[in-house]
């Protein structure tokens, strides 16, 4: 194919001189190689330039991560220092535009934690079962139907989830709310945009992430495990849940953690369904997440208020970094040992 033509184009018939012992493992091409094209000098300078260029490209991700981390810290710390870290993290009053402003984001953090936790509790079982179906049970026909469905679910933009949530879920919640809290005088009616709506939307959004990773790790479990289990008299389902699943544990956990990351970082979808009021995360309260807190107020904030929003961003960033480091240290190692990753 392209490979063979590439060679014959560049090197017509002539025997090459002295192909130095150069393996692909060697990172620096040896510059004494004489080739038929151009002098070895011009060749080696091109080689040098290209290897520098590729090294720079290779370091781009490193630069990006450190750049982002540095900027989040630089932009996020002034407000925390001015407000006081305890006051900022554990204060329950968020009144950024009041005469005597207070910036406490405890409820916002709690909402993100509780919302993410609930959506994982709801979404992960469904995702795991679907992964089991895809990896173990699905006949070819059904597989070809469910697999693209999962892929499509992963590709749907988050604003669309938000739109559907706000049109379909929120009215439903409003009806439920007015039924449950009929006659209540203490409840603040939210019109349906509440924690439950946000959790439901998030639960659906993490499905593809968890399904994909779990399916891959279930498939990576050696055939012999299943065969041995079946030969011992276990039924197919017992084999799946008592042998295959435990063997694929670390992959499944990785999927769940990735799902947590996705849920905690989601902004636009829950923006449209959560109601955006700083509140204790109770099911029928309008709530504000870390992400939505930034989106809501960014456009009109200024001064300390704006800096406080960057601090919220920093808190979110810390959450994400903890999840990432967890993934790359603890879980990766477990995965390597099991041979599933």
């Amino acid at each position: 194919m392209a490979a063979s033509t590439g060679i014959s184009d560049g090197y017509p018939n002539e025997p090459t001189q002295k192909p130095e012992k150069e393996t692909s493992a060697g990172m620096e091409p040896s510059f004494r190689v004489d080739t038929i094209q151009g002098s070895s000098k011009s060749k080696s300078s091109i080689e040098k330039v290209m290897s520098v260029i590729f090294t720079v490209c290779g370091l781009s991700a490193v630069v990006a991560v450190f750049g982002i981390a540095a900027y989040m810290v630089i932009a996020g710390t002034p407000a925390i220092r001015e407000i006081g870290i305890a006051e900022f993290l554990f204060g329950t009053q968020w009144r950024p535009t009041a005469e005597d402003p207070s910036f406490g984001i405890l409820y916002i953090i709690l909402t993100s934690v509780v919302g993410t936790g609930l959506s994982v509790l709801l979404g992960v079982p469904v995702a795991l079962m679907t992964a089991v179906f895809l990896a173990e049970l699905a006949p070819k026909r059904l597989y070809q139907l469910v697999r693209p469905a999962v892929e499509l679910l992963a590709g749907i933009p988050s604003v669309i989830y938000g739109l559907l949530g706000s049109i379909l879920l929120v009215p439903l919640m409003r009806r439920m709310e007015s039924w449950i809290f009929a006659g209540s005088t203490t409840h603040q009616f939210t019109g349906g945009a509440n924690l439950i709506s946000a959790v439901l939307v998030l639960a659906i959004m993490i499905l593809p992430t968890v399904i994909n990773v779990s399916e891959t790790s279930l498939r990576a479990v050696p055939r012999e495990y299943r065969e041995a289990s079946l030969a011992l008299g276990a039924t197919q389902m017992e084999t799946i849940f008592k042998v295959t699943m435990p063997a694929a544990k670390s992959g499944v956990i990785t999927g769940v953690v990735l799902g947590i990351g996705r849920a905690i970082g989601e902004a636009m979808a829950i923006m449209m369904v959560s109601g955006n009021v700083v509140n204790i995360p109770l099911p029928f309260n309008s709530v504000r997440f870390l992400t939505t807190g930034i989106v809501t107020e960014m456009s009109y904030s200024s001064g300390l208020h704006r800096q406080a929003l960057f601090s919220i961003g920093l808190v979110l960033f810390v959450f994400i970094m903890v999840i990432n480091i967890l993934l790359n240290t603890v879980l990766k190692k477990g995965g390597d040992a099991n041979g599933t990753k």
Binding site: G58, L59, A61, G67, G265, A267, I294, L316, F317, L327
Partner: peptide, 20 residues
């Protein structure tokens, strides 16, 4: 290390990219 940073990048939520 580079692969770790690539993975980290893909885990950063878009709102953080927006802020940055």
């Amino acid at each position: 290390f580079i692969e770790f940073t690539v993975e980290t990048l893909s885990g950063i939520p878009s709102i953080i990219y927006g802020l940055f």
